[in-house]
């Protein structure tokens, strides 16, 4: 068994192409680093992220999932970010039912120029997931 310090969580970050994805680009452009184990998946709007996508990420061994969208009232598709927020809440409950800590899924909002915020979120979430340990579903966990 690996020591807890060596645990490198698998984190899937669904990023809205209008904001969070560009914020990740900004972080890179500013050479602000963040944990490399955050796997960014570009989506056209946070509203495209389905409850099923998140559940499947856990099935495939993710330890945590992030949904990153635009700030409230700044969604190009009006309600996409609000819908994403509600879905994250639903996944929290669905995971809790399964016996997986709902806190493993979080939603944040950011603007394209918030590179440092992106890095901060990535760092904080990485630390939180490390605290929680590997997902109980993960094979070999």
């Amino acid at each position: 068994m690996k020591a807890k310090g060596a645990f490198l969580p698998d984190i899937v970050a669904f990023c809205c192409a209008q904001s969070a994805y560009q914020a990740a680009d900004t972080a890179g452009s500013m050479r602000i680093t963040y944990p490399e184990n955050i796997r960014v998946i570009r989506v056209p709007c946070a509203g495209r992220v389905d409850v099923l996508h998140i559940l499947r990420a856990f099935e495939k061994g993710a330890d945590g999932v992030l949904v990153l969208g635009c700030h409230e009232e700044a969604c190009r598709h009006l309600s996409g970010n609000i819908r994403a927020k509600n879905r994250v809440q639903r996944v929290n409950t669905l995971l809790q039912e399964v016996g997986i800590d709902g806190k493993r899924v979080e939603m944040f909002t950011l603007a394209p120029n918030q590179g440092s915020r992106f890095a901060r979120i990535a760092n904080e979430v990485n630390e939180r997931i490390k605290e929680l340990g590997p997902s109980p579903v993960k094979s070999g966990a």
């Binding site: 099935e59 399964v98 016996g99 997986i100």
Partner: peptide, 8 residues
């Protein structure tokens, strides 16, 4: 959900 629970 069921797959996750049984895997767990």
């Amino acid at each position: 959900q069921l797959r996750l629970a049984s895997k767990k």
